[in-house]
Computed example of a mutant assay.
Amino acid sequence: MPELLPLSDADWRLCSTVRAHLQRGAVVALPTDTVYGLAALAQHEHAVAQLYKVKRRCELKPVAICVSRVEEVQRWARVTTPEPLLRALLPGPVTLVFERSPALNPHLNPHTPLVGVRIPDHPFLRRLVARCGGPLALTSANVSGAPSPLRPDEFAELHPLLACVVDGGALGGSALARLGSTVVDLSQAGTFKIVRAGSAEAATRRVLQEEHGWTERV
């Protein structure tokens, strides 16, 4: 069974413990700003393979990466947006899709030239990513096709496959939280496409269309 670790934003030992599990190629579960997620080092080939195995996810379906700061997005993706637009969307419950950078692990999402990038509005998770020194592969903590979880007990069947579970209590300040992040393709400058409505579709559209004048692609 995994380590069950209560979340404390002030507990640096917790961050060190989770990082140690990640650095040996393990998969962990932790809270995000939407649902509970499964995380592994994105640049670690074995860890990515294990993430897919735990989730029982088809290898053709990509997973997003999580970074800690807006400045890091350009390292892993070919950013088409001006920085003010990035900062208007991130951090938050949004996944931005761009062309992938050659620096990204070629074994992560090898069947697509694109990559989704997240900066969750969650202090512990951003601190953890910063201390890992590279992006995390991040996906919801459920078996593929099952509802995304808002509590650790909702993915109890996965616990034996995980190195640790960070327990941040019940998530979800609204009924939309279980929908996860809004996924929007920004790979073509000046236009966008909503790939998944998620929990922040209306706010994302407002930023893109009304505040920055981007056009929606059909």
Rank of each mutant, 00 (worst) to 15 (best):
V73W: 02
S68P: 01
L158F: 14
Q209K: 14
P6T: 09
H107L: 12
P123Q: 06
L108R: 04
G213C: 02
E216P: 14
V48I: 13
M1I: 12
G180R: 11
K55R: 14
L128T: 01
I65D: 01
T34A: 08
A10V: 10
L85F: 07
P102E: 06
L108E: 04
A163S: 14
Q209V: 14
A177W: 11
A170Q: 10
T191P: 00
H46N: 12
A175R: 14
A163I: 10
V218Q: 14
E216L: 10
W12T: 15
Q23N: 11
C15Y: 04
V207S: 08
A49K: 15
T95L: 04
A177T: 13
A42S: 10
Q23S: 10
V183K: 09
R100C: 00
L14N: 06
H159I: 10
M1R: 13
V70L: 08
N105R: 10
R126W: 00
A88G: 10
M1K: 08
C132L: 05
A29C: 03
P6V: 04
A175V: 15
G173P: 03
T95P: 02
L176Y: 08
W76S: 05
L96M: 07
S181V: 03
T17M: 10
A197M: 04
P82V: 06
G168I: 05
H111R: 10
R19V: 04
G134M: 05
G180Y: 09
L179I: 02
R19I: 05
G198M: 11
S199Q: 11
V79G: 03
S8G: 15
P160Y: 12
W76L: 09
E157W: 01
M1F: 12
L60T: 15
A40E: 06
L128A: 00
R24A: 09
D185Y: 00
M1D: 10
Q74V: 13
H107T: 12
C15E: 06
L86E: 13
L96T: 01
H122L: 01
G25I: 09
D185N: 08
D167F: 01
A29N: 02
H107C: 13
D33G: 05
A177D: 15
R178W: 14
L51R: 10
V48N: 10
G116L: 07
L104I: 12
T17D: 03
E216T: 13
P147I: 03
V79C: 12
E45W: 07
V27T: 07
R75D: 13
V18K: 00
P152I: 03
A177P: 09
T32E: 02
V207G: 08
V117G: 02
G198F: 13
L22R: 11
E71L: 04
A170K: 14
C66N: 06
D167G: 06
L208H: 08
P2W: 11
L108H: 06
L14M: 08
R205F: 14
V35H: 08
G190S: 06
V184Q: 06
R100I: 01
R78T: 11
L5S: 00
V166S: 01
W214T: 11
R127M: 00
R57C: 13
D153E: 15
L114E: 09
L128V: 01
E216Y: 12
T204I: 08
A42I: 03
R205M: 13
P82Q: 04
E71P: 01
L179P: 02
A49R: 15
C164P: 03
R87Q: 15
T112P: 05
R19D: 01
C66R: 03
P120A: 00
D167S: 03
L89K: 11
D33H: 09
V218H: 11
